[in-house]
């Protein structure tokens, strides 16, 4: 049996590492990498909310047999449904932001955000 507190703690620490990266890095691609780490941490936290010790994956199979109000054998499926789509949307937004980063590089010839803007 794995306690849910372990997963919660991992998600928190990962989120804080990603937040520190977003706050301190100056390279724009490094900022996007940090943002991806933060996003992964939030997904991990949401799945951990639905985790129940000793329960099974929410798919009815022959070995599980039947479920009723008195024998609920599943973990919470609602956070999983939310995270499933969130990951795919995350890839779409990451691709869009990387495109903007490439365009900024072509314009200013640098990836450093402190040197962007103003006169070229």
């Amino acid at each position: 049996m794995i306690s849910a507190i372990l997963f919660y703690s991992t998600a928190f620490v990962l989120f804080l590492i990603g937040l520190f990266g977003v706050l301190t890095r100056k390279n724009i691609i490094k900022i996007l990498v940090s943002l991806s780490i933060t996003e992964t941490a939030v997904n991990l936290f949401l799945i951990a909310v639905g985790y129940i010790e000793g329960a099974k994956a929410p798919i009815l199979t022959k070995t599980i047999g039947s479920i009723s109000i008195n024998s609920l054998k599943f973990v919470d499926p609602l956070p999983q449904a939310l995270v499933l789509t969130a990951i795919v949307i995350g890839l779409g937004t990451t691709a869009l932001s990387l495109t903007i980063a490439i365009k900024l590089y072509k314009n200013y010839k640098t990836l450093n955000i402190t040197k962007m803007g103003g006169k070229k």
């Binding site: 009815l60 047999g65 039947s66 479920i67 009723s68 109000i69 609602l78 999983q80 449904a81 499933l84």
Partner: peptide, 25 residues
Amino acid sequence: PSRKITFGESKNFEEGSANEVTSIV
């Protein structure tokens, strides 16, 4: 009020998907 769901037997449920995540999405 709820019913018991059995794999391979229960018919004509609200929607008959075995994977709960799929049914929600």
